[in-house]
Every structure is written in C-alpha cells, then in structure tokens.
Design a protein around this nucleic acid. Structure first.
Lengths: 182, 182
DNA sequence: CCTTGCATGTAACGCGTTACATGATTCA
DNA sequence: TGAATCATGTAACGCGTTACATGCAAGG
C-alpha cells in the first residue's frame, strides 16, 4: 500500500533513475520503508503507466540505458491526499518477540547468543542515526520541512533505544533462568 | 518465515482446531504475529503434510467438521531449533513515519487528525496490555515460563509507550508549524 | 577484444489479504 | 424447515524476495 508513495516522496525530493532510487532506499527513505531494486523497477513501471510520474525526455528508452523519472502534478496530488488518509496502524509483527514466546515452551537454547547479536546490531543502527542527526540537524538550523524530517529521524532513534532496552531486559531475564528449562 | 512457528507455539501451548487458533491469534499470540483464518488453514495443511503436526484421530476429516491438531516430536524439534537460529531483524517498515516524511514535501493537510487517531488507538492498546499484565502477571507469581512470557508482554507495552511518546512529540511539532506549509 | 561494473529488467515463488463458497450444527 | 452460527475451505491478487538475464560503457 505504501511503496508507490515512498517512491513519489523520493522522486519529489530529487528526480532520479531506478538505480539511484535503489541506493537512496538503502539510506534515508529506506530506513523506514525498505525496497529492493526489483520492487522499485516494477513500481516505477506502474506509476508511469498511471501517469503519476514520467521519464525525462532526455533519456530515450533502451535496456541498459539510464532512465530518469520526475513526478507529475497528478502524482503530487495523490501523495498529498495519502498524507491525511485514514489508515489503521498494522499490528506488531516481530519474530524476536515470537521466538521468546516459543522459548517459554520449548526451551531457550541458543536464544541468548541471538539476543546479544541483535543488541549489537541495534546499537550500531542507533549510532548511525545519532551520527546523521548530528550532521543534518544541528541545533542552530530550524527550517520547517527540516523539523518534520527531524521528527521522523527521532522516531527511528527512539525505536532503536526501545529495542536496546528490551533486549537488555530480556537477556537479564534469561540469565536468571534455571540452566536447563523444560 | 515465522507463521508456521507461531502456529507450532500456539499448538504446543494447547492443541486446537483451526478456528480456535484463529481466535487465539486475535488475542495472545496474535498481538505479536497476526494471521487470518485463511493463512492458518493453509499453513495447517502444510504442517500436516510435513509431518510436524497431526490431526487427532478422534476428528475424522470432513468439510465443516471440527478438526483438532497436535504437535509431533518433529514439530517440537523444528521449533526448538528456530528459537536459537540466526535471523537478522527486519528493517523498520512504518507507514506513519513515511507519511510524515512525505508531509515535509507536499504539506501536512489532514495529518494532525490522523496522528490524533493513532494516538488514541495506541493508548487503548496500551491499556489493554496493562490490564493483561495485572491479570496474568501479578507480582507474587514467579514461574520460569511465566517470566519469559511476561518479558514479551512488557515488550508490547514499551512499544506502545514509544508510539504514544513519538505521536505526542510529532503533534507538537505540527502545531508549531506555519499554517499553510508549502 | 574482453572483463568489470553499471543499469534495467524477467521469472518464479511464498506470504498476506480479500472475497466468496460449502458443509455441519443448533435452535426457534 | 429454515435461519443463524460454527467450521473448514477455494480463488485470485498484490507485495516482497530470490535468482537470473540482458544490454551498455569504460579501462586495460
């Protein structure tokens, strides 16, 4: 439901080719909505057919030839409409929480190592976000669009902090458990 | 990747029919891994074929006739192995964060109402979790498996608190913005 | 030339979602 | 007996994922 809107947003921020988009989805936008290059090409095709974007005339179509896209007015309207649309939050779907629950039934073997690994990954991600915050949102700057983007980034930061806190708590609980549960 | 494991966990906690599972996925397990009855029936079929579960002999197969399943030893092993398996955390995929980012480009119209709606939904969910915590995990109880399940629930609680905090912050930011951005 | 990297694409599969269909059971 | 409910199932579609295929361009 949201990939086309992610692409429209990215293209409005800066007209790009498919591969450029893919790279940007590995960084900024992709921190909150990831996508592979196959998904992106497929979706670009649909968006073009729906006349929400168009290929820049400079780039004539040919396989292997770079193709730049820009958003058409209809695409901008669609995105503006989506921003305020009613859409329920998706229920949580997290494999780690589920594994923890499974561990309560079949035992915790190997789980502690996996939790530690995740803890480390989330710490790295947090460090990366904090680094971006320092570089892109220094206290003195204060433009309006920047403030919205900053709130988004802070969301990512607080989510990572949540995971770090929860994983630490869970590891503590695991250690306090009898050695061979069940 | 995880639905079969969610089902195995649920069936180990209590052998059930497809519809019973569906109901339980609307409550406990489903708080962390939701599934519709179609997914569940499809998956039950696969698990049975793979000999990880079996239908209880009492319930002879017939459309419309209740069919109870239980986990076979192979199913329990599979689940125990999965608990400690290496599996990277999925990157965040959240439409609200994305919409916020889109709003920075095309304007925030309608977004504040939607954020308030989500804030309300998350407050309700938090209240429900806290209620479950009071009923299922009173301070005096302290069994080992219970502690793991309690950690899972606390994860859900802290996640809801994260959303409530972030949405509050985001709403504050929206109000502080010029009335007709961009 | 030929390899390497860039860039766009195809194909196939599985899970998640929505809509609908069918068979049993209960009770008015 | 017929409506409501319980229970299991089919069909179709779209997104996400993985593997692979094809075309162009630059440097050795």
């Amino acid at each position: 439901m949201s990939l086309p809107h992610a692409i429209l947003t990215a293209l409005l921020e800066k007209p790009s080719s498919g591969l450029e988009l893919t790279r940007r989805f590995d960084r900024s936008i992709g921190y909150f909505w990831s996508a592979t290059h196959q998904q992106i090409y497929r979706e670009l095709g649909k968006l073009e057919e729906a006349r929400l974007i168009r290929a820049l005339p400079s780039s004539q179509p040919a396989r292997g030839r770079r193709k730049e896209y820009e958003v058409l007015p209809a695409g901008r309207s669609e995105l503006a409409g989506w921003v305020g649309r009613t859409e329920d939050p998706k229920p949580i779907r997290d494999a780690l929480l589920l594994r923890m629950r499974a561990a309560a039934v079949v035992g915790t073997e190997g789980l502690d190592a996996e939790l530690r690994r995740h803890l480390d990954l989330h710490r790295r991600q947090l460090a990366e976000y904090e680094d971006i915050e320092k570089r892109h949102f220094p206290p003195e700057r204060d433009a309006a669009e920047d403030r919205l983007r900053h709130v988004v980034l802070r969301g990512g930061i607080e989510l990572e902090r949540f995971w770090i806190g929860w994983l630490t708590e869970a590891l503590g609980e695991l250690e306090r458990l009898p050695p061979a549960p069940r």
